[in-house]
Design a protein around this nucleic acid. Structure first.
Lengths: 231, 231
DNA sequence: GCCTAGAGTCTACGGTGTAGATGCATTCGG
DNA sequence: CCGAATGCATCTACACCGTAGACTCTAGGC
């Protein structure tokens, strides 16, 4: 009882438990480190046994994205929809920074599955944000457009920020300089000149600024009753 | 000579040729269909011989993204920067629709490679758009911010649109209805109600609308000399 | 004619996802 | 209390993967 780990290996697992250690594996060693055999040995179980909790590897990946998205709290009945959208944006950003290795999953998996057939957990944010917007007074049609603009902006920002994200900030500048120095000066003058600016990128501030612009635009469209902008 | 295909297999290949048929393979059969062996047999060559043109599989993928991005024409000296940005946006959208299977690559590869070490071809759009903006009068600092907003919006939109994209529009409605019907009504009322709206999503119009909003915001900031919005 | 260098080929190794057979333990029917 | 059945865990095996290293073959220089 002192060690509820994998040592007494006869404990019965469940899907969530499997997904959780799969997530740990991805977080610590990257996506391609996640194989059935590797996961099996992390759980001290036969790899084949895992098929009891995930139909196949793809389903495992879907489960991970679902698990991660469940970390995101949304309160669709909050009357202050702007504050809510702003908080969700920051939360999602932090979530992406916490699990950078699963961001490719977040972004990629939906591309290969028609909307209606996706894991329910991944549709929850969409549903709830639609609810939030409709509650706030948007017509359902417009709510969808607003969601697209919001979601598009968010994912765009996350991709932006993660592309320039490197764990050790010390190393950041070094690597950046190193890499940019490699660029042929005559073909990439602008990029090289902007190296220092690239190096100190404040993702949180940039996200917040962008969200402010978006929200003010949306609020105006809500009160004047015009159609919402595209995303 | 009548068939410059793979039949007389003694012709010497080059990297571009290899990448091009790799791209064809990905376009027609998906990303996971691209293996060294498969590609080798598509070129009627020994799979090992391909390592002459790509250091490894990752390099092959990088090459494909580079090849695809090269389809994008940018004229950094065009004085009408707004028209230019609008055209590029539409071109990139079409490019994504033309090669939906490589979009995951476009989006994912940069996440695993520090900016400075990326294939030069993938940095060209960044460099040239920075040039365009600086030429237009933005301070280099602001140009970077503007680029991020622009790029983030674009990629966000593409991800949005591709998630709802299905080849056969006939099937589209069917699948969508089918899928959404599967959703538990009490948990997903909004999503189910919006099914018809989801079905006819005009990506081009939505992109154009969004770009207009973005550009007008940017133009204003350019003339008033304020800082650019975040992305 | 021979030697060399390089391109093309083959084999082999350690990994992968997963189908199917097999072993095992537990529970149920009599 | 015993046998059968039922479901879970495990094992083996197959087809595929990326790629290191050895080998063969060819073309060109002397």
């Amino acid at each position: 009882m002192s060690a509820p780990q994998e040592t007494d290996s006869r404990r019965r697992l469940n899907r969530e438990e499997v997904l959780r250690t799969a997530l740990e594996l991805v977080d610590s060693e990257g996506l391609e480190a996640l194989s059935m055999r590797r996961l099996g040995q992390a759980l001290d179980r036969d790899p084949m046994g895992l098929y009891r909790y995930a139909a196949n590897r793809a389903d495992l990946l879907d489960g991970i994205t679902e698990l991660v998205l469940n970390e995101l709290a949304i309160f669709p009945t909050d009357p202050d929809w702007q504050a809510q959208l702003r908080r969700i944006a920051h939360d999602l950003r932090l979530l992406a920074l916490r699990h950078p290795n699963v961001v490719p999953l977040l972004v990629t998996r939906p591309l290969s599955t028609p909307l209606g057939l996706r894991p329910l957990g991944t549709l929850r944010p969409l549903e709830q944000i639609l609810g939030l917007l409709i509650e706030a007074g948007f017509a359902p049609n417009d709510a969808l457009h607003v969601y697209r603009a919001y979601y598009g902006f968010l994912y765009g920002h996350i991709l932006n920020e993660l592309q320039e994200y490197i764990v050790d900030p010390e190393e950041n500048v070094a690597l950046l300089r190193l890499g940019l120095h490699r660029l042929p000066a005559r073909d990439f003058p602008n990029l090289r000149e902007l190296a220092p600016v690239l190096a100190d990128y404040d993702g949180e501030a940039e996200l917040d600024e962008g969200i402010s612009i978006l929200l003010s635009g949306l609020a105006e469209r809500l009160t004047t009753g015009k159609e919402a902008p595209a995303g």
